[in-house]
C-alpha cells in the first residue's frame, strides 16, 4: 500500500505543478459616473422622442436676477469668446439649482453661451466642485488631505465623529435630507487643520466636540459662526502672538518730513 502511495505521490505533485493558476483583477470603476443617466430627478427638458415611460422632465431656466448676473459675467469677455464664461455661469446655475448642476442646468448654460452642450458637459464633469448629483442644504465637505489628517486632532477623527453623529458615510446624505457629507482634497486652509466647508463657509480648527456643536446648530437651521472654532483669530498662533506684537507703523511714519 505504501508502495503504491509513494509511486502516486510524485504524480500528484506533478499534476499540481502543471495546473495553471488564473488571476484576474477586479475592475476599478470610478467613484462618480462620467456619463449622464436619466433619472426621475435629473433629466433634460428637451428630447427628440419621448416615451410615456420616460421620467418627467426637469427643466431649468435662469431666473431674471441670475440672468442679469450671467450677462454681466459674459460682458467681461470679448463677444466671440462668450464661452469663456462657462465656469462662473455654471456656478450661478448650480446655486440657483439648490447646489447641484443637473443636466438641464448644463443645457441652459450651453444655450446661454451658444456653445455645443458637450463642451459644457466636459467642463462640468472635469471640475469636482460642480456637483452632478443632488446635495442636501448642508453640504459638508471635509478635507482629508495629509495636513488636515495630521493637524489638530486629525481629520480622521472628525470624519468618524460626523459619520457616527449623522449615521452616514462619506458620499452619502442623511435620511432627513439635511446633510450631505463628502471627503475633499485640500481646500487651502491647512494652517487651521482640520477643517470642513459647509456651503460657502469654512469651519476650521475642528475638534469632535465643536464639530458636533456645528452639526447640531446646522440641523436646527441656525448658522454657526464660521472660521476657527478654537477661538483664535484666523491662523494666528494659538498660544498667543510671539512676534509682531507691537503696533504696526502706518504710512509715512518715520519718514522724512516731506514724505509724511
Amino acid at each position: 500500500m505504501s508502495a503504491v502511495r509513494s509511486v502516486l505521490a510524485p504524480l500528484r505533485r506533478s499534476a499540481l505543478a502543471g495546473r495553471r493558476t488564473f488571476t484576474s483583477s477586479s475592475s476599478r470603476r470610478s467613484e462618480s459616473l462620467f456619463v449622464h443617466r436619466d433619472t426621475d430627478y435629473n433629466n433634460p427638458s428637451e428630447r427628440d422622442c419621448r416615451e410615456p415611460t420616460d421620467p418627467v422632465q426637469i427643466p431649468f431656466e435662469f431666473d431674471a436676477e441670475n440672468l442679469k448676473r450671467a450677462n454681466e459675467i459674459i460682458s467681461r469677455y470679448p463677444p466671440q469668446y462668450k464661452k469663456a464664461a462657462v465656469m462662473p455661469v455654471l456656478d450661478l446655475g448650480q446655486r440657483q439649482n439648490k447646489g447641484w448642476t443637473s443636466i438641464s442646468v448644463m443645457n441652459a448654460v450651453a444655450k446661454l453661451l451658444e456653445m455645443p452642450p458637450m463642451r459644457v458637459y466636459e467642463v462640468a464633469s472635469f471640475y469636482t466642485m460642480y456637483n452632478r448629483e443632488p446635495v442636501a442644504p448642508n453640504f459638508l465637505q471635509l478635507c482629508t488631505t495629509s495636513p488636515c489628517q495630521l493637524g489638530g486632532c486629525g481629520s480622521t477623527k472628525i470624519l468618524e465623529t460626523i459619520e457616527n453623529h449623522l449615521g452616514i458615510h462619506a458620499g452619502q446624505s442623511t435620511k432627513d435630507g439635511k446633510f450631505t457629507l463628502i471627503e475633499v482634497e485640500c481646500l487651502g486652509a491647512c494652517s487651521n487643520a482640520p477643517m470642513m466647508q459647509v456651503g460657502d463657509e469654512y469651519y476650521e480648527d475642528l475638534t469632535p466636540e465643536t464639530t458636533i456643536k456645528i452639526l447640531n446648530a446646522l440641523a436646527k437651521g441656525e448658522k454657526p459662526q464660521p472660521g476657527p472654532q478654537s477661538g483664535r483669530k484666523t491662523s494666528e498662533n494659538s498660544a498667543g502672538l510671539t512676534t509682531l506684537t507691537s503696533k504696526p507703523y502706518g504710512p509715512g511714519e518715520f519718514c522724512l518730513p516731506e514724505f509724511q
Partner: peptide
C-alpha cells in the same frame, strides 16, 4: 468629447 478627468477621463457624448 471627453468627460471626467485624469485616470477617469473618458470619451463619449455624456448623454
Amino acid at each position: 468629447g471627453t468627460s471626467g478627468r485624469g485616470n477617469d477621463l473618458q470619451i463619449g457624448m455624456y448623454i
